[in-house]
Amino acid sequence: MLRARGAAPKPHATMTDDEILSEFRAAEALLEGHFILSSGRHSPRYLQCARVLMDARRAARLCEALAATIPADLAIAAVVSPAMGGVIVGHEMGRALNVPAMFLERPTGTFELRRGFRLEPGTRVLMMEDVVTTGLSSREATAAIAVAGGEVVAAAALVDRSNGAARFDVPFYPLIRLDVPSYEADAVPPELAAIPAIKPGSRAA
């Protein structure tokens, strides 16, 4: 059973953990099966954030709730997110925080700003993800933002499903933390290995 971490629901602006999970369930975004995550790990459950974000009003509700948890004294001046999964959620966070939103792409395998996006030196950036599993793409995005001249002062995500494994050098603000089991490819339980694996994410490797 997918459940929020912690003993009791906590409020996110006007939303509790149960209300946030209800948004995912209403969008049919909590999937059961055998999934290969973008990290290469295997899991019996998958959060398809794209389905949550396809409803603009739902995306706005979730991101406004998340934005309410970001301290004003961080003085965020821009939101930058990694494509593809972070594009919509980054845009919604930019709107909620009333700052510009940009996204990073991998035209040659390494994240970079394109399409005329640029950061003035020292721009205070919120690095925004949809789901954090290992923190790998977050670290790669943070490095790319630094190369572009920005300073990541905080990270955020709709969902932290890292089970505490993801580490950040800046404050991290997930809207909700979920315990979702995942396994290395050579340690998949037999009952999961018996189910054909699919790769639902946007990253090919």
Rank of each mutant, 00 (worst) to 15 (best):
V152I: 13
A141D: 05
D160L: 09
A166Q: 08
L178A: 05
S182L: 06
L175T: 05
N163W: 02
D160W: 08
A143K: 14
P174C: 08
V159N: 02
F172Q: 01
Y173K: 00
A165G: 00
P181K: 13
V159W: 05
L175N: 03
I176M: 07
P174Y: 08
A148S: 14
A166P: 01
A165H: 14
Y173I: 04
A148F: 11
V153W: 09
A155G: 15
A148H: 07
S162H: 09
A157K: 04
D160T: 10
R177Y: 01
S162Y: 12
A146N: 04
L178V: 07
V159K: 03
V147H: 14
A143S: 14
R177E: 15
V152S: 13
A165F: 13
A155F: 03
A165W: 09
R161K: 14
A143W: 10
R161P: 03
G150L: 08
V153S: 11
A155I: 01
V170C: 12
D160Q: 08
D169Q: 13
V159P: 01
G150R: 09
T142P: 00
D169C: 02
V153H: 10
V159Y: 07
L178G: 01
V152D: 11
A146R: 15
V153M: 09
D179F: 03
R177G: 13
P181Q: 14
V170R: 13
A143L: 12
A157W: 06
V147Y: 08
A143C: 03
A157E: 04
A146H: 14
L175A: 05
L175I: 06
A166K: 06
N163D: 14
G164D: 06
V152G: 12
A155L: 05
A148M: 09
P171A: 05
D179H: 12
F172D: 02
I176Y: 04
V153T: 09
G149A: 09
S162M: 10
N163F: 00
P181M: 13
G150P: 08
V153Q: 10
V152P: 11
F168M: 12
E151V: 13
E140C: 03
Y173R: 04
R161E: 02
I176H: 02
D169K: 12
A154V: 02
N163C: 15
G149M: 04
A165R: 15
A144S: 11
A141Y: 10
R161H: 06
A148N: 08
